[in-house]
């Protein structure tokens, strides 16, 4: 994974609360077996009309939004399904950060594991940012600060471990693998019986 330190990017605003992962990528796009190419399904039912043509009223379809890397959206973004495809689809379309007042738990976790930074900022700063289309923002993960177009700075927090992993470009798997002796010790002493070995229902 590439390290995430400073992101200078332009915003596109999707001014809606409770954007669920079915909106981010509808289930019919989940039938693949790889992490790639999911961008074509991103917001598919919002971006395109029933006849497949891009809808002019969808913010991302505006010509000036094509290069946006920061999605500004409403509260509880990413609620619903656990599909990590939502994160892969956003990243496939070039997004590197999502800024909103709050995020759903599973989405936030999935995003952090892939290098898509979920940034929760207070409502007042969020309202200012959401009012400015195609704004330029600078995200500094080390400082946990976003510089807004009006030159104000907003602080945010990311859990310290996820932040460390992002700054270093490492993933959680490495850390878990390094816990081998502790895991083995737990298995010897604490583990609940799985019930499989003695069962008549063994497959």
């Amino acid at each position: 994974m590439d390290p995430f330190r400073v992101l200078i990017g332009r915003t596109v605003v999707l001014p809606m609360d409770d954007v669920d992962t079915d909106q981010i990528i509808p289930a019919r796009f989940l039938k693949g077996t790889t992490r790639t190419g999911l961008g074509q399904g991103l917001f598919a039912d919002r971006r395109y009309g029933a006849d497949g043509t891009p809808r002019a009223d969808f913010p991302r379809n505006r010509p000036d939004a094509a290069g946006a890397t920061v999605l500004v959206t409403g509260r509880n973004f990413g609620c619903g399904s656990s599909r990590e495809h939502a994160v892969w689809a956003l990243m496939d379309q070039g997004f590197r950060a999502v800024i909103g007042p709050s995020f759903a738990d599973i989405f936030r976790g999935n995003a952090l594991k892939n290098g898509l930074l979920p940034i929760a900022i207070p409502a007042e700063a969020h309202a200012r940012l959401a009012a400015a289309e195609d704004a330029s923002v600078t995200v500094d993960l080390q400082a946990q600060e976003v510089a807004l177009p009006d030159r104000t700075h907003v602080r945010f927090t990311v859990d310290p471990f996820a932040r460390h992993c992002l700054l270093e470009g490492i993933d959680e798997m490495e850390f878990l693998l390094s816990q081998e002796s502790a895991i083995a010790a737990y298995e010897r002493t604490h583990e609940e019986p799985s019930g499989r070995g003695t069962s008549q229902g063994r497959t």
């Binding site: 999935n110 878990l176 816990q179 895991i183 298995e187």
Partner: peptide, 20 residues
């Protein structure tokens, strides 16, 4: 609880997850 696919991989490999 539900998990994403990265975590499915972590559990397959280590039978553990990281959680606050």
């Amino acid at each position: 609880f539900g998990i994403g696919t990265s975590e499915v991989g972590y559990v397959l490999a280590t039978q553990c997850l990281l959680a606050w």
